[in-house]
Design a protein around this nucleic acid. Sequence first.
DNA 1: ATAAGATTACCCATTTATTGGTATTGTGGG
DNA 2: CCCACAATACCAATAAATGGGTAATCTTAT
Lengths: 209, 209
Amino acid sequence: MIRILIADDHQMFIDGLRSLLERDKNILITGEANNGLQVMECIQKLKPDLVLLDINMPELNGINTTALIRKKYPDVKILILTMYKTKGFINGLIRAGASGYILKNTGNAELMEAINTVAGGGTFFSKDVAETLTEKHTKYTPLEDAVLSKREIEIIREMAKGLTTKQIAERLFISSYTIETHRKNILHKLQLTNTAEVILYASQSGLIN
Amino acid sequence: MIRILIADDHQMFIDGLRSLLERDKNILITGEANNGLQVMECIQKLKPDLVLLDINMPELNGINTTALIRKKYPDVKILILTMYKTKGFINGLIRAGASGYILKNTGNAELMEAINTVAGGGTFFSKDVAETLTEKHTKYTPLEDAVLSKREIEIIREMAKGLTTKQIAERLFISSYTIETHRKNILHKLQLTNTAEVILYASQSGLIN
DNA sequence: ATAAGATTACCCATTTATTGGTATTGTGGG
DNA sequence: CCCACAATACCAATAAATGGGTAATCTTAT
């Protein structure tokens, strides 16, 4: 019996997946979570074997959640379910301790295979994902292994509201120079070159909302 | 018996939803589609009563698909399933002919209610969506019915890649001055003030991807 | 306690974006 | 045939962002 926790910010996706997986007598859905913080609470209470984790969640994002699970509960397997196949993400998640990574556009059979493989201690990556990982390093790679600080995320959110460096400084009661530094560090950490790329990254990785 | 077609670019979401809905004896899932073009093909072949439509699909987006269905098959009901609650989109979809609009983070009960209501000829909107529609116009909201031209969308996509005005000009073989004009028009149409807001809007409204 | 990282702060040169104009040509719908 | 709008192009002033530094505190985890 494989005990599974499903984490996704879309309840409808959880409902559907639960219905699908419960057909399998060998699977037990022990619980659900809509954000990273709930995931941590649920693991403690429910002790699942495997967490099906969406990386696009509010409160605590996928990479941080993965790292936290790996640290506190080393025996819990993590299978990432997502729609992003950015190289940096995948690398970051693997380094954080995920055992598998499959895209949401994959079918039923592959999902079952992934669950069984990962639950059995193996690793599983969608074909598309595996291809992305073996790709040559392209010039405009979105990000490597981004670990943004709390403050940096806060600043990105202000940027997304269309505020300028000066306006952000006023709102946070600190110097414009400091915001300038933060923006520089954000660009450097994400290996990006301008605001447009940062906002797209933030939006697509669930940093905003 | 309600005959339903499910359209979403994530096969896993379709699989789950199918499993969930098939429990109801009154519902028959007649088919699936992963993009707008497939939706049109399937409707012709399968003659469903209702289409569950994700707006974030490749090939043909949600608004255009909705308008096309309404035009060619006026009797087919359209229930939008999505995660975006931008006012402009909701308005656009309603005008295009959708009968309902619910967010993917809503639960099972509400989904069933929405399906039954819409199939019965009524309209259904999630509480969140209804709230968005009655909200007062806030200062930093993109313009409701922004109708961006083909070229403008193309330029937004280039902007999202982090390209500068000069680089976009080179890639599209036109003058930088022209790109400047387009950017100005984009900001004006959306009633925004800088690139950050444009990229966030584009990302959240499904213009990118 | 100590080292690593986060947060703060400053300066300056350069590049880009934004704003506010004007204006010509092409094109699809009524 | 016209009109509205799309797409093109140009100029110039100003605002903002980016890239290159340096450096002092403050937190936090080992």
